[in-house]
Design a protein around this nucleic acid. Sequence first.
DNA 1: CACTTGTCTTGAGTAATTCAAAACACCGGC
DNA 2: GCCGGTGTTTTGAATTACTCAAGACAAGTG
Lengths: 156, 156
Amino acid sequence: MITQLHAVLREAGLKVTAPRLAVLAAIENAPHAGADDLFGAVRLELPGTSLQAVYGVLGALTTAGVLRRIEPAGSPARYERRVGDNHHHIVCTTCGAVADVDCVHGDAPCLAPSATNGFTVQSAEITFWGLCPKCQAAAQSEAAAASAVHDRLSST
Amino acid sequence: MITQLHAVLREAGLKVTAPRLAVLAAIENAPHAGADDLFGAVRLELPGTSLQAVYGVLGALTTAGVLRRIEPAGSPARYERRVGDNHHHIVCTTCGAVADVDCVHGDAPCLAPSATNGFTVQSAEITFWGLCPKCQAAAQSEAAAASAVHDRLSST
DNA sequence: CACTTGTCTTGAGTAATTCAAAACACCGGC
DNA sequence: GCCGGTGTTTTGAATTACTCAAGACAAGTG
């Protein structure tokens, strides 16, 4: 597997270094991870690595097209290996968790807005906002607790 | 017109204050402006206003549903008055300019992704990326200049 | 194996935003 | 029209995510 990651880097025309392999390995285990998360993961294997190195690696891999950088509102930047296909993201409004979503329409329709105010459209990006399964459960049990309190209060 | 803005605030259940009126007035003149731009505009009319007051006003108005906050990747947060309708944005990849775009599909289709990984979808947000008219022109004249240089070099 | 080029470490700096506490102002009631 | 409570604004500081720069170091070419 290390050899595979090695190949990924070479094919992108990049030098193969330990921090780069570590970042790639970390991202396999944690898709949509942020720089800080990856830094934590990389440190476990390569304790000497600096945060700036991680930023450098992420920048280089993103420029080379190996990684895609996504930046949901209110959340630090996240990175993913899936590049070159048309997929979008759903972000949890409560905890910020991210999951992949394939576009319902394939890709064409969303790339053709009606009026562009003179802009040339290069790409379209869709972000869905909602609740992840975990936060749905948390919201439900919280609602249950609240209504229990309400019952108690209104019965006095 | 000041009375109109006044009414906007009262109807949202908010106290009417000079900074709030000034921010609302500024946003009428500059839709999609960021906190810093608005701070600059507000200062012209209300020199004593602090940047934190502007952040406070923007936060309060956003929570009250009077403003919408948009946060394109790589750009500070921007605010707009158009709320409650289904429209999206196109952002210039070069200068960050933002324009409104009405969704081709109305609103329904983009709200129904095929597989949501267990997430509950609350809303969908589409960001188009492209070049604004100004940057298209700049890119063209730069390309022309580059090819002129190329001509000169290749003719030697 | 040496050399070149690009990468990583170390250290500092920046932009956008948030937090906290005290002074102040809006506005409903008197 | 004035007063008081509540919410807003000011002042000042802190935080987060990220970028910049310079020198030490390592990957890969020949």
